[in-house]
Design a protein around this nucleic acid. Structure first.
Lengths: 149, 149
DNA sequence: ATACACCTTAAAGTCAACTTGAAGTCAAGA
DNA sequence: TCTTGACTTCAAGTTGACTTTAAGGTGTAT
């Protein structure tokens, strides 16, 4: 079995040791054990827990809610259903975030076209004053949205 | 021409009036004019600026950088190129964010399968102790990543 | 046994982006 | 004219997630 100190595990995860200590303090790492002298001893299986925490963090979940999930997991098999429900909820949240970023991407692509056209003409007034049917079809709805229609 | 107070514009945008005042204070709204008595007067065209600010915010850009963009825009046509460069940079950033969220989504889908399997069997030890070739092909790389391989 | 790197805790500090509160001003309707 | 609701500024407070600092303990290598 391989064991790690907080510094080693932090390095492996690419985070600061203080971050792991902070997570522990906040109750997110109840699974981490201690040596005789009080030093944290991370096991190989703890890496997986930290990976799950990292995954949930990437979904935008707050530490207090991640803590709830970890606490459920510590209860054992009786909490399988609420854990499943939470995962499904986060999955839907991530899908919504992707959809929103894709809309943002379309807006940026419009702006890219806008400034490219401005650059070619030496002035933003050319793309700005174009009529709807003069601009590429894929950007029409974007401009309508930006202008409040 | 239609004009709006800070409260009306905030409502239209779905933000708090204090947010718009804060943005103004931070120099993000140099285009907003004032009445004789010192009250902010938002024009129709300001809605579009606020939409651009909102778009950049959704990319994760900080207010100080959005301010830089707005300041460039206020300089006029001589800043078309740096504005285009900034838009392209944000576009790439958003693409990377989408890719990361998609990876997170795959992890959540693995976890959904994991807890569904646990639920069917009454214990997480069933999915946990499965060998790699027992689990659905699409989840193999996810589990390898979570376990640190 | 001593040095040294790395560990410990507790408390305070930081940062971005707001939000709230206090005290006062503006403008539209009765 | 007066009331009323929304506006103004400035300063201080809030939130979440860390990071830093200080004072001290651990553990391994020589």
């Amino acid at each position: 079995m391989m064991y790690y100190t907080v510094g080693e595990m932090a390095k492996r995860l690419g985070v600061a040791p203080s971050t792991l200590r902070y997570y522990d303090q906040e109750g997110l790492l109840p699974f981490v054990e201690r040596s005789e002298g009080g030093i944290r001893v991370f096991k190989e299986s703890d890496y997986e827990w930290l990976g799950v925490i990292g995954c949930l963090k990437k979904t935008g979940m707050q530490l207090r809610d991640i803590k709830t999930f970890i606490e459920m997991a510590m209860q054992g098999d009786q909490t399988i259903e609420p854990r499943l429900a939470l995962i499904i909820k986060q999955k839907e949240s991530v899908k919504a975030q992707i959809a929103e970023l894709e809309e943002t991407l379309r807006t940026l692509e419009f702006k890219e076209w806008y400034y490219n056209t401005a650059k070619e003409n030496g002035t933003t007034s050319v793309p700005r004053n174009m009529t709807l049917d003069e601009l590429p079809e894929e950007f029409r709805e974007v401009r309508l949205r930006l202008r409040g229609n």
